[in-house]
Design a protein around this nucleic acid. Structure first.
Lengths: 253, 253
DNA sequence: TGAAGCTCTTGATACAGATCAACGGAAGTA
DNA sequence: TACTTCCGTTGATCTGTATCAAGAGCTTCA
């Protein structure tokens, strides 16, 4: 069942401006008037319950969504293959950039916990972008940044050990939470070990084992899904770890 | 604005229109006038010799490039890590989309063989996109498509065997060549085994061994870098192969 | 013509991580 | 309350692929 957007009158102060995520969201850098226009095309935050789908793979693409609170995962199912987790979305991040220019959604997106998302109907966004160069630039930049992020992920997936993948993953989360004003050292993993494993190309048992080892080594403390980074430098060292592969890399220097 | 003579000289016919790649390139779908404008901002094809760099990681980003002929690879070097191949570019493909919105190039791009590229200075492209909605759409679509491509790659890298990766890689190349009017069954691998291995997250020895095995099985024939797909269905079966992971995936049905 | 570099192939061995299996706890449900 | 289901942990084994090693072709260049 699709959550229904509430109707609302146009308010004098753009809502986006008052949103706590404003500094990290798409309309960043828009002038007051532009922000007002942007605000007008947004559909009010929709609530999602844990496990509820925001998009289904193959469904027609109509809107981008910005996460306001909570978190979501994207999964892609390919024929003859286990569905894989391809993204985790945190507040301020944009869902659906990979569906632009196809008529259909590339993967399914599901809430990992109670969440709110703002809907941006894409055709209206395009019309608006026509007269707001700033917005166009923001959109390009977001997509380009995502391209780089995906490439970093590709580098992580080929060529790096389970330890390195997990350490990088935790550091990445830490940074994302931190830049949202939350603690970089203590946060809640809204995804299961199985989700993490799927995302990182590891078996869920491996995820569990490596986390346990990191804890033994004193880099982190885990209790269920509550995670504490107790020694971030140790974790960074684990992410960069000099392995055989790295020794070989030195030959290129 | 260029004054246009009443009677257009032959040179005013947009070069893009006569380009054999026109049907696959960025300006696809532009009207005559728009194409003319587009043509105006292109810098004439630049020649690259094998091994020559088009971009260097960290260098300032100024232009997108479209491959006219030949092929290139992108490599990303990360500290404490072997440089990894992240992309191969074939004619008609756009280099640099991942650098938009940063000031610097995300990876190095090097010619794998003699190549020609068309340069599109990005600021001029942006100005042009301001008044050509078609072009904007094309740009979004290109970036979005690349996002999906990268995600497919991520799925390939996590969770799939060496055989599946290699088979998918060959099929992907086949399709790209085919859609450029070249033979889908017989083509030249301009990249080394080592490049392929780096791209697919495999050791170069593994690439060599798997290719040899595919040949034994009658799916392909390889002689150095000359590749023939002798049984495309066999290759497709190898790419989709039902492994343990797949059996598990069936549980989700 | 040979020497020096490459790239590619092929064989032997080692190991990281998958898989199989069993169990305990938490959360929801009848 | 007991039952089911999901999630996480831990142990034992197995295997795909990396790594090490050696040699064969191909280019390039002196």
């Amino acid at each position: 069942m699709k959550p229904r957007p509430a109707q609302r009158p146009r308010s004098a102060v753009p809502r986006c401006e008052r949103c706590t995520l404003h500094a990290r969201c798409l309309p960043l850098g828009l002038e007051f008037d532009a922000l007002q226009s942007f605000d007008d095309i947004i559909r009010l935050p929709q609530a999602l319950k844990r496990g509820q789908a925001l998009m289904r793979q193959g469904a027609p693409f109509t809107s981008l969504y910005v996460v306001r609170s909570g978190s979501l995962k994207q999964t892609v199912a390919q024929p003859e293959q286990r569905a894989q987790v391809t993204h985790f979305y945190l507040p301020g991040e944009i869902v659906g950039l990979d569906a632009i220019g196809e008529e259909e959604c590339h993967g399914s997106v599901v809430a990992l916990e109670s969440a709110f998302v703002c809907e941006l109907p894409f055709t209206r966004l395009e019309v608006l972008a026509e007269r707001l160069p700033e917005l166009r630039g923001r959109l390009y930049r977001c997509m380009s940044r995502e391209l780089r992020r995906d490439q970093r992920m590709m580098c992580l997936l080929s060529g790096r050990t389970a330890d390195q993948r997990l350490a990088s993953f935790l550091l990445g989360l830490s940074e994302r939470f931190s830049s949202r004003g939350l603690s970089p050292y203590r946060f809640f993993l809204s995804m299961s070990r199985s989700d993490i494993g799927s995302y990182l190309g590891l078996a869920l048992e491996t995820v569990s084992r490596v986390l346990a080892r990191f804890q033994e080594q004193g880099a982190i403390a885990v209790a269920g899904r509550e995670l504490t980074i107790s020694d971030i430098e140790a974790l960074e060292a684990l992410a960069a770890e000099s392995t055989g592969a790295t020794r070989a890399a030195r030959l290129f220097d």
